[in-house]
Design a protein around this nucleic acid. Structure first.
Lengths: 187, 187
DNA sequence: TCTGCGCCATAACACTTGTTATTTTACCGT
DNA sequence: ACGGTAAAATAACAAGTGTTATGGCGCAGA
């Protein structure tokens, strides 16, 4: 009946996502994606209405990528909080373009941006999680868990953003010590 | 001898800087600057070799702007650290585009980017400054001042970056309390 | 007043962007 | 084998970028 499709939506999304990882969101243009995928720009606009739709798909893929990254990151710290911090900071260092896209760009869509509140909810579903940790700390007569999580988030977000601009030079060991020390004092 | 200059380098730089403040660095193009300055693009390339040179001038102006902002910010806190934090966070909130340019963009030039170390040096020349504060804390038997400044910087930088994406909703009073509480525990 | 130099505006060039029209090409059903 | 049809390639359009060539025009010196 008709010609068989040779460039799938998966190939295009994979290519665009990989380019976002390596070169940053700003460099994901129709022609560059096409060149890297080894085709013309036409298949892109067959499977996506326009570039914005592709960018949104890349954004969704980035969220999933971070969740995988976080869940697979080795838990070497003594507390859920330090493990979260270690993973978050490492993600900013190793996947700076994805970190920028997810946690630093003021996105156009309303509920699209990943922030403190959405992270709190995500972590709530996790086993041995940070939220339970801060709640337990509250019952032990410490700070309000909401406040504590905010303080925690400010700190690890700060370190992560510094690592993004190359302004964070602490080793993993030093970071772990710093985080655990911070948690003990902050709660 | 010749026609008198009507568009000065000051007019162009002023316009470009104001556009960076309001619309962000990315929107500062030759034609847009010219339109806002009420002239053609020609005067721009008379006083600046190319756009990159103008952007560097804007960057320099942004640094000076931040220094003014910081030095004029009211000192309502009880410690130099909390005053630094209040000013830094307010700057990120009120001048988000300038903050992004100065503290979040990985600049091309080597020594151009403002970071923890350069801030440490700037603050060192200040009266009643943060550096002296952390040094005094050390003599009182507390943490190493370098470490303490790093911790301080991580925290205020984190809050500032959150405020950039609208993910920081604490009032000035709450912020001040948070910072002073953090400093007392961290040192 | 005139002349010439240099400022400024207009227009153009070369390039990149998203997007779309047109044409070629390959496949599946007949 | 052959047509039709959808996919893919080619090419084009409109808009926007930095930058440069061209030409008018206004002001200082004569």
């Amino acid at each position: 009946m008709a010609r068989k499709e040779s460039i799938t939506i998966q190939m295009i999304l994979d290519t665009a996502f990989e380019m976002t990882r390596e070169e940053g969101f700003i460099n994901v243009t129709a022609r560059k994606v096409a060149a890297k995928a080894g085709c013309s720009t036409q298949p892109i606009f067959r499977v996506y209405k326009n570039m914005e739709e592709l960018w949104e798909a890349v954004y969704g893929r980035a969220i999933a990528y971070f969740q995988d990254y976080y869940s697979l990151y080795p838990r070497t710290g003594q507390t859920p909080f330090s493990n979260l911090g270690m993973a978050y900071i490492a993600f900013a260092r190793e996947e700076s373009h994805l970190f920028e896209l997810l946690f630093l760009s003021q996105s156009a869509g309303e509920g699209a941006h990943v922030n403190r509140k959405s992270m709190y909810e995500v972590l709530n579903g996790e086993e041995g999680n940070v939220v339970r940790e801060v709640t337990a700390a509250r019952e032990a007569g410490c700070t309000d868990p909401g406040d504590l999580f905010t303080k925690i988030w400010i700190f690890i977000h700060g370190a992560a953003c510094m690592s993004l601009t190359g302004d964070y030079d602490l080793s993993d060991q030093e970071t772990r010590k710093l985080l655990e020390d911070f948690y003990m004092k902050a709660r």
